[in-house]
């Protein structure tokens, strides 16, 4: 079965293309920060699809690869600020994994703009909006992922 996303992309391509971005958010800080952006009615582009996880340390590099393989144009990992992790040190693990994975992506020729990480706390609704806006801009510049492969 052809992935509906791939189909969609084939149909649309270039002119009406809008990036689709997968975002892994930790439950305690970033997901709550995104909630706060909602309760404060801060508008941001609709390109992001949020997957809630307990901790940024739960993000398996395989998830990121799978997102890009399945047609997401970009992937974001967002977690608590360093030192503020609900589970003490999950975000430190996430940060190290991110650094290595980013290197791997560079080696593989994947545009590094496609994979980003951000620290968004539960009280940073505004920061979440800023992160999403900037990310969408960057990914727009990077273009559709399948079009290049």
């Amino acid at each position: 079965m052809i992935n509906p996303r791939t189909q969609e992309l084939k149909n649309s391509r270039a002119e009406s293309w809008e990036p689709k971005i997968a975002a892994f958010l930790c439950n305690w800080c970033s997901y709550a920060g995104a909630d706060l952006a909602g309760t404060s009615r801060r508008e941001y582009p609709p390109n992001i699809r949020i997957i809630r996880l307990p901790c940024s340390g739960r993000v398996n590099p395989l998830f990121v690869l799978k997102c890009l393989m399945d047609g997401a144009d970009g992937v974001l990992i967002a977690g608590c600020h360093t030192g503020d992790c609900h589970y003490s040190e999950g975000n430190y693990y996430a940060r190290r994994r991110f650094a290595i994975l980013k290197k791997l992506f560079e080696f593989l020729g994947i545009d590094p703009r496609r994979f980003q990480m951000a620290w968004v706390s539960a009280s940073e609704g505004d920061k979440w909006v800023k992160v999403v806006k900037e990310l969408v801009e960057e990914i727009k510049k990077a273009g559709p992922i399948l079009a290049k492969s």
């Binding site: 739960r58 609900h86 040190e89 999950g90 693990y93």
Partner: peptide
């Protein structure tokens, strides 16, 4: 506490978080 850090390091995918 179910943070899930263990799931990522498991080479065999033997450990998993219920619900996530």
């Amino acid at each position: 506490t179910g943070c899930g850090n263990c799931t990522v390091v498991c080479r065999m995918s033997a450990i998993d978080i219920e619900g996530f």
